[in-house]
Design a protein around this nucleic acid. Structure first.
Length: 267
DNA sequence: ATGTCCACCTGCTGGC
DNA sequence: TGCCAGCAGGTGGACA
């Protein structure tokens, strides 16, 4: 669920609560999520000062003054809540600062994960080392699509080529660029790739500005919804009229995941 | 190397 | 009301 804009929104919400604060209490309520939760998480984080709150691709990063970085992934259903009023089912990790403020990781499906690594070795961690460039800021480089046979949809989801896109924003960016998700990656024309390269950061930035997209689980850290789902042009709109040409939006399944597109606008 | 699937897990919705 | 099938924002790893 949480793609780059949702993770960015969550980390922006955590920053004022955690950054610069000393961690007074850290609790892991179960031994594992997708991977084992580090057994020394509590010992290494308790008493440490949070020196940075960052995001890389769909990962949240929390740096401490002890030279450690916690790597946080929200999987499909992960949420962070700040200063929650009540405990909820699937609250797995609780972090409390010296001000008594709390950040709680809740993840019903447990596809998310928590790792703790030396900040110096962060880039060589197996979750980080294969990640492609960030799709914000600098222009997106899609030259890696050359010679590839996989559908352009699959290439955009490949975190080694571009890091941070998921099913929603890939569908939306392909619509904006007028490219059908089934097109063979290597056969997408240069001019179309240029449109796509521009559409990707554009849609991500609009989603961040809207606080992300709330379909089911996702919330901002204080419980607010995201609002970008109201701006979807194709995602989840099967059978509804294309906003550009009024043809019905189609849904197909590619490698087990839904792709939404306009059969008339997207060639 | 490249592309395709499955598995991991819970919760919700819609049909019967 | 109950049951069951199908579906969901991700992604590492197994396979041909």
């Amino acid at each position: 669920m949480p793609e780059l804009p949702e993770v960015e929104t969550v980390m922006r919400g955590l920053r004022p609560v955690l950054e610069g604060r000393r961690l007074a209490r850290v609790e892991a309520r179960r031994p594992d999520l997708r991977w084992p939760i580090p057994a020394d998480l509590r010992q290494r984080l308790t008493g440490a000062v949070v020196t940075g709150i960052r995001r890389r691709a769909k990962y949240g990063l929390v740096d401490t003054d002890r030279g450690d970085t916690m790597i946080l992934h929200l999987g499909m259903s992960g949420r962070m809540r700040v200063d929650p009023e009540t405990d909820e089912k699937h609250d797995h990790i609780v972090i409390e600062t010296d001000e008594g403020r709390r950040a709680v990781l809740n993840d019903a499906r447990r596809f998310g994960s928590v790792h703790l690594v030396s900040t110096d070795a962060l880039d060589s961690h197996f979750l980080m080392k294969g990640l492609g460039p960030e799709p914000l800021g600098a222009p997106v480089d899609l030259s890696g699509f050359k010679g590839r046979f996989a559908p352009v949809k699959a290439l955009l989801l490949d975190q080694r080529l571009i890091a941070g896109l998921g099913n929603i924003y890939v569908c939306e960016a392909l619509f904006d660029a007028g490219i059908r998700p089934t097109r063979e990656g290597g056969k997408v024309k240069r001019t179309e790739l240029a449109k796509l390269a521009a559409a990707i950061p554009e849609v991500l930035e609009r989603a961040i500005a809207a606080g992300g997209s709330t379909l089911r689980d996702y919330r901002q850290v204080a419980g607010e919804l995201g609002y970008f789902q109201h701006e979807f042009r194709v995602y989840g709109r099967e059978g509804e009229a294309c906003l550009r040409c009024a043809a019905p939006v189609a849904r197909i399944v590619q490698s087990g995941r839904s792709s939404f597109y306009c059969p008339s606008c997207q060639k």
